[in-house]
Amino acid sequence: MIRSLKCVFVLLLALMCLFYASQNIANIDACYSAIAYVLSMQEHAVYPNSIMPEVTASPLVWTAVLVIIATEILAGIVLLKGCWDMWSVRQAKAATFNASKKYALVGASIGIIVWFGYFGVFGGALLQMWQTQAGAMSLNGAFQYFASCVFIWLLVNTADV
């Protein structure tokens, strides 16, 4: 039962990644505007000076948008592969099932890179996106998704016997 639940958790995390990527694609203009707003560092009243220059060049903003969406998709696909690998051997010996977790763990790690790395480290710490309402909302959401990735990573990584 626990092995099956781990597979379900990985599947749900994969769907989360793919749903967010799909929502970003379905709302590509709004996605671009949100990323452009954060990269421009507008309305930074609390910490008005930054070590990072503002980024307003459209090709650079589009690059950031595409990297975010592509990495969300990659995380989802790798997680689906991990789910399939785990599901296929859920009735096997513990060593076989434990070995099947590789792609699930890699996929969750990619999700951590997206929502902790891109949003927490670069968006929050470097670009100071927490200073605006829109940036703070994005940062709060990213923390929830990052926490989901970490939680599933920890659950899946526990050894099965």
Score class of each variant (00 low, 15 high):
120 G>E: 08
92 A>F: 01
143 F>A: 04
133 Q>W: 14
41 M>L: 12
91 Q>Y: 05
97 F>S: 03
156 V>R: 04
9 F>I: 09
94 A>T: 13
41 M>S: 09
74 L>E: 00
145 Y>L: 15
77 I>F: 15
41 M>F: 09
84 W>C: 05
101 K>D: 01
121 V>G: 08
118 Y>P: 04
3 R>Y: 04
127 L>K: 06
151 F>N: 04
125 A>G: 09
112 I>V: 12
25 I>N: 11
153 W>H: 07
137 M>A: 15
100 S>Q: 09
104 A>Y: 00
112 I>R: 06
70 A>M: 15
94 A>M: 11
158 T>H: 14
71 T>F: 14
134 A>Y: 02
129 M>V: 07
125 A>T: 11
144 Q>A: 15
153 W>T: 04
37 Y>V: 07
106 V>A: 13
10 V>Y: 10
145 Y>I: 09
97 F>K: 00
121 V>F: 15
130 W>N: 03
75 A>D: 02
41 M>G: 02
32 Y>T: 08
155 L>R: 03
71 T>C: 02
61 V>L: 06
57 A>K: 14
105 L>C: 03
125 A>I: 06
154 L>G: 11
123 G>N: 07
6 K>P: 06
6 K>A: 01
50 S>E: 12
13 L>P: 02
147 A>I: 14
105 L>I: 12
37 Y>W: 04
107 G>F: 06
63 T>Q: 15
73 I>T: 08
107 G>M: 09
75 A>H: 09
29 D>S: 14
2 I>Y: 09
28 I>G: 11
150 V>P: 00
105 L>P: 01
107 G>R: 08
7 C>Y: 02
116 F>P: 01
8 V>M: 10
22 S>L: 09
156 V>A: 06
79 L>E: 04
20 Y>M: 05
155 L>Y: 09
15 L>F: 06
32 Y>P: 05
37 Y>N: 10
123 G>V: 00
40 S>A: 14
86 M>W: 00
135 G>I: 07
19 F>V: 11
122 F>Q: 06
136 A>K: 13
140 N>V: 14
114 V>I: 08
36 A>K: 07
156 V>Y: 00
97 F>N: 02
106 V>D: 07
40 S>D: 05
7 C>G: 02
6 K>C: 04
63 T>I: 03
142 A>W: 03
132 T>M: 14
55 V>I: 15
14 A>R: 11
95 A>D: 10
148 S>H: 04
88 S>L: 03
87 W>F: 12
150 V>D: 04
38 V>F: 06
132 T>K: 14
111 G>T: 11
19 F>I: 14
50 S>N: 10
154 L>R: 00
30 A>N: 13
8 V>I: 15
115 W>A: 04
8 V>T: 13
